[in-house]
Computed example of a mutant assay.
Amino acid sequence: MILLVDIGNSYFKWAVAEQGGIAETRYLNYRETHFITALTQAWGELAAPEAIGLAAVAAPDVVEDVFRLGRSLWPEAKWVRPASARQGLGLTSAYCKPEKLGVDRWLAMIGALHAYPGANCVVDCGTAITVDFVAADGRHQGGLICPGLRLMTQALAANTHALPVAAGAGATALGTDTDAAIQAGVQWAAAGLVEAALRRQKQNYRLVLTGGDATLVAQQLTVDKVLDVQLVFKGLLRCCVESETVG
């Protein structure tokens, strides 16, 4: 069994992988006071993993706490912490400084490359929305980054007079009150970015969506898409399986 861990900008996520399959993702808010207590209880119910794959783009203090907890619970487990590179697992980075590419984007592209052979447009809808194009041969073509749905909504609330932070799922139609208009507006903005990026390419790409807000963005899209919320974990599992440290 392999334990997969993703520490993002907003949430701490983990899932168990066995025999190539990945179980349902579980979430905790690592900013909560009792985060480590809650995680200790949740992980205490798991069987000892052979390996622990860790991807982290934020919160180095949280990473250290997680290392400490994992080592205390499962001292024999091997740790695998991938890093973005020039090349790896069939993927070639387009970045001049490959180490500057977020590891979550790197893993999502690896996950898509192996789960969905062919040319892919990988969109991760999280705290930020990232759009990356990967050719069928694994060559990353480059990408785009913009604020995620929550950040766009918060920016409106913080920089305009008397506009609240909107709540609700939004709609595919025009809003008839301010909250609905904000929710629809930020979701349409995200969908518009994705569709514009696809139109500007010289070849066709399969659209693969992942991340916490992927379902909301997918509802606004008028193009064919694949929804895979475990894409980062699929890339992380691939790294764990092929790492020499496993076993």
Rank of each mutant, 00 (worst) to 15 (best):
241 V>G: 03
231 L>W: 02
140 H>E: 02
181 A>K: 04
8 G>T: 08
72 S>V: 12
82 P>L: 05
186 V>G: 02
16 V>F: 00
156 L>G: 04
84 S>D: 01
148 G>A: 02
232 V>D: 03
213 D>Y: 04
7 I>P: 04
117 P>F: 07
136 A>H: 10
205 Y>I: 02
131 V>C: 07
45 E>H: 09
106 W>Y: 11
26 R>C: 00
33 T>F: 05
18 E>L: 02
52 I>M: 10
91 L>D: 06
78 K>C: 12
180 A>N: 14
124 D>S: 12
23 A>L: 00
239 C>K: 14
17 A>F: 03
225 K>W: 12
120 N>M: 07
127 T>F: 00
114 H>F: 14
41 Q>P: 05
139 R>G: 00
134 V>Y: 02
34 H>M: 07
153 T>D: 09
32 E>T: 08
29 N>K: 07
85 A>N: 02
125 C>P: 14
113 L>Y: 11
189 A>F: 09
19 Q>Y: 00
5 V>L: 11
180 A>T: 15
114 H>V: 13
79 W>Y: 15
173 A>M: 00
235 G>Y: 08
247 G>W: 08
46 L>G: 14
102 G>S: 09
180 A>C: 09
156 L>E: 02
75 P>G: 11
41 Q>T: 15
33 T>A: 09
134 V>W: 03
134 V>E: 00
198 L>K: 10
14 W>V: 09
110 I>P: 05
210 T>S: 12
128 A>L: 07
106 W>Q: 06
222 T>D: 09
1 M>P: 15
48 A>F: 08
133 F>W: 04
134 V>P: 01
164 P>G: 12
102 G>P: 05
65 D>E: 15
135 A>H: 10
61 D>W: 13
151 L>V: 15
104 D>F: 04
225 K>P: 09
132 D>E: 12
186 V>A: 03
225 K>Q: 12
141 Q>L: 10
36 I>G: 11
69 L>K: 13
121 C>N: 08
130 T>I: 01
148 G>V: 06
135 A>S: 07
182 I>D: 05
209 L>Y: 06
165 V>F: 08
214 A>Q: 02
2 I>A: 08
129 I>N: 02
97 K>D: 10
233 F>G: 04
31 R>W: 11
96 C>L: 13
192 G>T: 01
104 D>S: 06
199 R>T: 03
163 L>H: 00
184 A>G: 10
98 P>K: 07
65 D>K: 15
227 L>E: 05
91 L>V: 14
94 A>R: 11
21 G>C: 05
